[in-house]
């Protein structure tokens, strides 16, 4: 083979390459059999992913916490004093509380906007080798989830349902480089297109060159026709910097997403949209500064100095 003498090897290699090219052609032409194979594999894997998520998510959270080691050093020192059973109980409780908190906030958001939602648990964090940003959830077509539905958390937009299987669904995150959403600025109603960049920030490009953006502007989803793929009014993020380059046709800005995509555990899929646009009702409230009490002490020197 190395000397080019093995014709059987060459024939095998060529046959395999031709087969793979044939598969690509079939897939690009939309042959359903191949899509069915992918659906089948996911149907088999999703129960296993659910179990693995339950077992390994605390471990995954532990690895995530390592990146914030400096901040949690004190907490780690305290935890060292606890025994193994208490530590396990704490991790499980922390996990459950975080999920409960996320579930509560997502229901609050959905309730305010009158969205009909299906809650789901994140069971997988997507491929590590395909350069895409996706998650899998444990609800699918059996729960009414279909392709091109909006996915939210209590903080705002997470992404869109890319594929739905009987018991699971693949969600394209808003951070995915291929992600696009029609957006508008709360208040001023300027519209634009927000695209994912593979990081925690997106880029908003305004459609009108006569309008301007400013840091701190809240960006909301503009909504799609028949509310698919995006329902209107979902908070997306906040403008962190504006590109005012001279000669640019339209203004662009960096938008920091409200959702923390590295700690998603509970999400909600919007299966029914409200009759009316919630407009700016979902804009997050600005934090109220806490007053700091000040105490003034007057010191008076004594008249008769002590020896």
């Amino acid at each position: 083979m190395r000397n080019g003498g093995d014709n059987r090897g060459r024939l095998l290699l060529i046959s395999l390459i031709v087969t793979s090219l044939f598969l690509i052609t079939l897939d690009l032409r939309g042959v359903q059999v191949l899509g069915g194979l992918r659906n089948g594999s996911q149907t088999v894997l999703s129960p296993l992913q659910s179990v693995a998520a339950t077992v390994f998510r605390p471990v995954g959270n532990f690895f995530s916490d390592i990146t914030h080691l400096g901040r949690t050093r004190g907490e780690i020192e305290k935890l060292k004093a606890n025994n193994e059973m208490l530590l396990q109980a704490l991790i499980n409780r922390k996990n459950a509380d975080a999920e409960l908190s996320q579930l509560k906030s997502v229901l609050d958001l959905a309730g305010t906007a009158k969205y009909k939602v299906v809650n789901a648990k994140v069971i997988s964090l997507g491929s590590t080798s395909s350069f895409t940003q996706t998650i899998s959830i444990d609800a699918g077509t059996n729960n009414g989830i279909r392709q091109n539905m909006t996915v939210i958390t209590g903080l705002g937009l997470v992404g869109v349902v890319k594929m739905s299987y009987p018991n699971s669904a693949l969600i394209q995150l808003a951070t995915d480089p291929a992600f696009r959403v029609g957006a508008r600025v709360a208040g001023s109603q300027q519209i634009g297109i927000l695209s994912g960049q593979g990081t925690g920030k997106g880029v908003l490009q305004l459609l009108d060159n006569r309008t301007t953006l400013k840091v701190g502007d809240v960006i909301l989803a503009r909504g799609s026709q028949h509310n698919r793929p995006f329902v209107p009014g979902v908070p997306i993020g906040e403008v962190t910097s504006v590109d005012n380059a001279a000669g640019a046709i339209t203004q662009t800005a960096d938008v920091k997403f409200y959702v923390n995509f590295s700690s998603l555990s509970i999400v909600a899929v919007v299966v029914g949209a409200p009759q009316s646009d919630p407009r700016d009702a979902l804009v997050p409230k600005a934090p109220v500064p806490t007053p700091v009490p000040t105490v003034t002490i007057y010191a008076k020197p004594s008249e008769s100095p002590t020896p």
């Binding site: 690509i24 079939l26 491929s127 299987y165």
Partner: peptide
């Protein structure tokens, strides 16, 4: 066949 594979079926195979 992985659901998180973004390309057409056959791309990873090739």
């Amino acid at each position: 066949l992985s659901q998180s594979s973004s390309g057409p079926v056959g791309q990873w195979t090739l």
